[in-house]
Simulated scan of single mutants.
Amino acid sequence: MSKTTTKLAIAFAFKELLLEKPLDKIAVNDIAEKCEINRQTFYYHFHDILELTEWICEEDAEQALKENRTYDTWQEGFLSIFDMIKKDKAFIINIYRNVPKDYLYRYLYRVTYQLLYNVLEEKAEGMVIREEDKVFIANFYKYGFVGLVLEWIDGGMKEDPKRIIERLNSLIQGTFFHALNNAKINKK
């Protein structure tokens, strides 16, 4: 089995176990047994279950965003994040309830930041803007976006993500360009 295939098998077994019991009741032995590997094989790929959890989140996010990293497609990218979370509800709820919050926050912040930064880079084309200003703007929006996702998870994922995206889009329409324009360095 290739390294990637083994990692995917471990992740799949872990997600299946999460449908049966809470994350804090799952041991490495359970995962190894479920995907028919030995404990050492698990430890060859992951330091512990938390590292496995982070890896799964990163892989899922990468799949969800794919090509939706531009100004014209950021809504689809953000909607994909919502859809991914809803599809893996048992996994996300287990993380939300049983893993230190900073793991989930760090994951959501990283994914959202990259999406927003890519959009800002695109909108900043032809403008002279300090890197620290682009980072500041991306961070500002990141906290708002992640706050919406966390509130949605906290509320049981009931609201239609499309409606959240529509409302968010109408609220921030044109603000990326406005923020970048305000941060522009004027050449003299």
Rank of each mutant, 00 (worst) to 15 (best):
residue 1 M to F: 13
residue 3 K to T: 13
residue 4 T to V: 07
residue 5 T to N: 14
residue 9 A to R: 10
residue 10 I to E: 01
residue 20 E to H: 01
residue 22 P to N: 09
residue 25 K to P: 06
residue 27 A to F: 10
residue 28 V to G: 04
residue 28 V to H: 04
residue 29 N to G: 06
residue 31 I to F: 02
residue 32 A to P: 02
residue 33 E to Q: 11
residue 34 K to T: 04
residue 35 C to Y: 03
residue 36 E to N: 14
residue 40 Q to N: 12
residue 41 T to L: 11
residue 41 T to E: 06
residue 46 F to M: 03
residue 48 D to P: 04
residue 48 D to S: 02
residue 49 I to N: 06
residue 50 L to R: 11
residue 51 E to L: 03
residue 64 A to F: 08
residue 68 N to Y: 09
residue 68 N to S: 12
residue 71 Y to A: 10
residue 71 Y to Q: 14
residue 72 D to I: 10
residue 74 W to R: 15
residue 75 Q to L: 05
residue 81 I to Y: 02
residue 81 I to L: 12
residue 86 K to D: 14
residue 86 K to N: 13
residue 86 K to M: 13
residue 87 K to N: 10
residue 91 F to W: 04
residue 91 F to S: 01
residue 93 I to C: 03
residue 94 N to H: 06
residue 96 Y to M: 07
residue 97 R to P: 01
residue 103 Y to T: 10
residue 105 Y to N: 10
residue 108 L to P: 02
residue 111 V to D: 12
residue 112 T to R: 09
residue 115 L to Q: 12
residue 117 Y to A: 05
residue 117 Y to W: 02
residue 118 N to L: 09
residue 119 V to Y: 01
residue 120 L to H: 07
residue 120 L to E: 03
residue 124 A to V: 04
residue 125 E to W: 13
residue 130 R to L: 08
residue 134 K to D: 05
residue 135 V to Y: 07
residue 135 V to N: 10
residue 144 G to F: 14
residue 146 V to P: 01
residue 146 V to T: 09
residue 147 G to C: 08
residue 156 G to Q: 09
residue 157 M to Q: 03
residue 163 R to E: 15
residue 163 R to T: 13
residue 164 I to C: 01
residue 165 I to F: 00
residue 166 E to T: 07
residue 168 L to A: 14
residue 168 L to I: 09
residue 170 S to F: 12
residue 171 L to R: 13
residue 172 I to F: 09
residue 174 G to Q: 10
residue 174 G to R: 11
residue 174 G to C: 05
residue 174 G to L: 04
residue 175 T to Y: 11
residue 176 F to S: 08
residue 177 F to S: 15
residue 177 F to Q: 15
residue 177 F to C: 11
residue 180 L to P: 10
residue 181 N to E: 14
residue 182 N to A: 09
residue 182 N to P: 09
residue 182 N to D: 12
residue 184 K to S: 13
residue 188 K to A: 15
